[in-house]
Amino acid sequence: MKLEEVEAEDNVSTVVQFVLLGFSELPSLQGFLSGLFSIIYVVLIGNSLKGIIIRLDPALHKPMYFFLANFSILEICYVSVTLPRMLATLWTLDRSISLVGCPTQLCFSLVLGTMESFLLAVMSYDSYVAICKPLHYPLVMNPKKCHQLAAGAWLGGMPVQVGQTWQIFSLHFCHSNQINHFFCDIPSILKLAYGDTSVHEMSVYVVVVLVAAVPFVLILASYSKIIGTIMRLPTAQGQAKAFSTCSSHLLVVVLFFGSASITYFRPTSNHSAGTDKLLSLFYTIVTPMFNPVIYSLRNQDVLAALRRLLLKT
């Protein structure tokens, strides 16, 4: 891909488009990766149908399923920011992305990732109230409260991440336009910036603490209370079932927050392109693929709703 550039007043070439290198270092695996990611995307689209089923079946109009429906829709939106573009690159080998397209992709990725972080915290709070405060659950998690929590999760991080995207792309980019990643992500973009980026790196750390570390701590606090309550259950069978559910949830939470935090907390100078891509696959594709399945605490209810819906048609 030939570098497109224009001459600035100080005779420093200014980038007018970027090139996403993606997995170009693995030419023999392009076909395999294309097929693999296509299958993953189909699975994710199928998982997102749970949101429609929950919306259509009155029997599932409960707080847990309300949040699960929001989560399923959010996951397909989140993955659609990066995966279709990655597939198009693998199919056409056109790796260019415009100076408008790159910040747009970054902004949506950050905003939706923040929404997922907040929604995971909300869902853990819902589980905490359901298990630890069952008598108060209908009063605490009333429809108005559920809608407020969901709206907060969807909208809470938007101003911060839009501002951070504007700050990142207010930098001057020159000499190279090659982003060694499969999507526009902050660490890879900062490597191309001209001049000192330490202030921008610090702002990234602060934002990650607010939108990832704080929700993660709240989730761990919720599950510590849940586990304490489970330990007091009278039957070993009930304890085993509850622990199985909690361990699955915590595994997804650790994968999502762990891979994202490692990516953004490391100094830009210590970033390895291969490691960044691997970690990014976890929090942008792998965990979203499993989340809707694992977070369906009672999948049989959703399947029963699907059967009822099919019988009506």
Score class of each variant (00 low, 15 high):
Leu44Phe: 04
Val286Ala: 12
Ser188Asn: 03
Leu149Glu: 03
Leu297Pro: 14
Phe290Lys: 00
Asn70Tyr: 05
Ala69Lys: 09
Ser170Trp: 04
Phe243Ala: 06
Ser248Glu: 14
Phe257Met: 05
Leu90Arg: 14
Asp301Gly: 11
Leu218Pro: 14
Ile219Ser: 11
Phe37Asp: 14
Asn180Thr: 13
Lys225Pro: 03
Lys50Leu: 06
Phe257Ala: 03
Ser13Trp: 01
Val199Cys: 13
Leu190Ala: 04
Ser188His: 03
Lys277Phe: 02
Phe183Gln: 14
Arg95Trp: 00
Ser170Pro: 13
Lys191Val: 09
Ser28Lys: 10
Cys102Ile: 07
Ser13Gly: 05
Glu7Gln: 07
Pro267Ile: 00
Leu99Trp: 03
Ile76Asn: 01
Glu7Lys: 10
Gln30Pro: 09
Gln105Leu: 07
Leu190Asn: 00
Ile262Thr: 07
Asp57Lys: 03
Cys184Tyr: 05
Thr263Ala: 13
Trp91Leu: 14
Lys144His: 11
Leu171Tyr: 07
Ser222Asp: 02
Pro292Cys: 02
Ala273Gly: 11
Ile45Ala: 13
Gln164Ile: 00
Ser117Glu: 04
Ala193His: 02
Val160Pro: 07
Ile226Trp: 01
Leu112Gly: 09
Lys62Tyr: 09
Glu75Asp: 13
Val209Asp: 15
Val199Asn: 09
Ile52Ala: 09
Ala151Cys: 03
Tyr65Gln: 08
Asn299His: 08
Val160Ser: 07
Ile262Leu: 06
Gly35Ser: 11
Leu20Trp: 12
Phe183Ala: 04
Trp91Val: 09
Leu281Lys: 05
Ala305Ile: 07
Ile54Asn: 02
Leu68Phe: 07
Lys50Tyr: 02
Val42Gly: 08
Gln178Lys: 14
Gly228Gln: 04
Arg85Pro: 11
Ser72Glu: 05
Tyr137Cys: 05
Pro134Glu: 09
Gly152Cys: 06
Phe108Thr: 04
Gly274Trp: 02
Val208Pro: 10
Arg266Gln: 14
Asn291Trp: 15
Trp166Ser: 13
Val211Asn: 11
Leu190Glu: 04
Val302Trp: 00
Met115Asn: 10
Val254Phe: 01
Ile226Glu: 11
Ser280Ala: 03
Glu4Asn: 09
Thr287Tyr: 12
Gly35Cys: 08
Gln148Ala: 10
Gln239Leu: 08
Lys277Met: 03
Leu87Met: 08
Lys133Ser: 06
Leu171Phe: 06
Gln167Thr: 12
Leu20Met: 02
Ala8Tyr: 06
Lys277Pro: 07
Gln164Ala: 04
Ile39Asp: 12
Leu310Ile: 00
His147Asp: 13
Gln148Ser: 05
Ala305Glu: 06
Asn142Trp: 10
Lys312Trp: 07
Phe32Tyr: 11
His172Cys: 09
Asn70Leu: 11
Met158Asp: 10
Val302Asp: 00
Leu60Arg: 01
Val302Pro: 01
Gln161Phe: 07
Leu210Asp: 00
Gly157Trp: 02
Met64Glu: 13
Val302Gly: 06
Arg266Leu: 08
Ser247Met: 12
Ser72Ile: 00
Ser48Met: 01
Ile73Gln: 15
His200Cys: 13
Ile76Met: 09
Leu90Pro: 13
Thr89Lys: 13
Ser170His: 05
Ala221Glu: 15
Pro63Phe: 04
